[in-house]
């Protein structure tokens, strides 16, 4: 199958994502400063930091929702530049989950999931629907397939959003504060789905404040402040033995 071939080819390169000396500005404001990051295949990375530190911007640069002005970003051995074909390939390869879910309110849950496979991967409708149902089952809401997003709870909507990304068969998943807009009782159902994904070996980058989740699944925790990566470490040392003062201050405020 061609999909396997693609997967095969991309797994040959050891790095899923590589950022080299990357900078970004909003007007005069220097949001991201000299970011260097190498994400290995199958690695699970948690990014945290105070609000406004640039962590969301960082992962939004990885699928070019934001454009970086300096440095290089490589995803699965393809450079992310102005080339539309490159952008297209990379976006197919990366799934993204947003804080505000961003489901399409005019489409049913099933249509939300099938949209991109049909129009981007050019799959036949039957096949796309079968795949979609499979993923909806995995996030445990196959019975809601014909409802509209407005009829679901926040937790259910976020699980649909995850299923929608998975339908594209991505190699990498980006999560931009996936539980921040949820009521406390719904956070767990979303985190459970994410833990399952992690256990299956998906490459994940996750911006989150859920430190319990970070401790249990992360291979590495990255701490950012004012546009820079301040500290990165395995979760155990990160939480028990933070190096910099800013990390210590941050941890003391949220734990």
């Amino acid at each position: 199958m061609t999909e396997n071939a693609v997967q095969q080819e991309s797994t040959n390169t050891p790095l899923a994502i590589e950022l080299k000396d990357m900078h970004k500005w909003y007007g005069d404001f220097h949001v991201l400063k000299n970011i260097n990051l190498r994400v290995k295949r199958g690695e699970r990375i948690i990014i945290c930091g105070p609000s406004g530190c640039g962590k969301s911007t960082l992962i939004r640069c990885m699928n070019r929702l934001e454009v970086h002005q300096q440095g290089e970003i490589w995803v699965d051995g393809i450079e992310l530049d102005d080339d539309l074909k490159h952008i297209e390939k990379i976006r197919r390869d990366i799934g993204m989950v947003f804080q505000q879910f961003n489901l399409f309110p005019h489409l049913s849950v099933l249509e939300n999931c099938c949209l991109a496979p049909i129009w981007v991967l050019k799959k036949p409708k039957k096949e796309a629907e079968a795949t979609a149902m499979q993923y909806l089952e995995r996030v445990k809401i196959p019975d809601q397939a014909d409802k509209y997003p407005g009829q679901l709870s926040g937790g259910q909507q976020q699980r649909v959003a995850i299923a929608r990304s998975l339908c594209m068969n991505p190699n990498i998943m980006l999560f931009d504060e996936p539980t921040s807009a949820l009521d406390p009782e719904m956070i767990k159902e979303v985190l459970d789905v994410m833990v399952d994904l992690a256990n299956e070996g998906m490459t994940m980058l996750c911006v989150t404040h859920e430190m319990g989740f970070a401790k249990s699944v992360a291979d590495r925790v990255i701490f950012m402040d004012s546009g820079e990566i301040i500290e990165e470490n395995d979760p155990e040392s990160f939480f028990s033995n933070p190096q910099s003062d800013r990390t210590k201050l941050f941890l003391s405020q949220i734990l």
Partner: peptide
């Protein structure tokens, strides 16, 4: 190391 992929047209 990532090797450069040639740009398309």
């Amino acid at each position: 190391m990532s090797k450069p992929v040639k740009a398309t047209a």
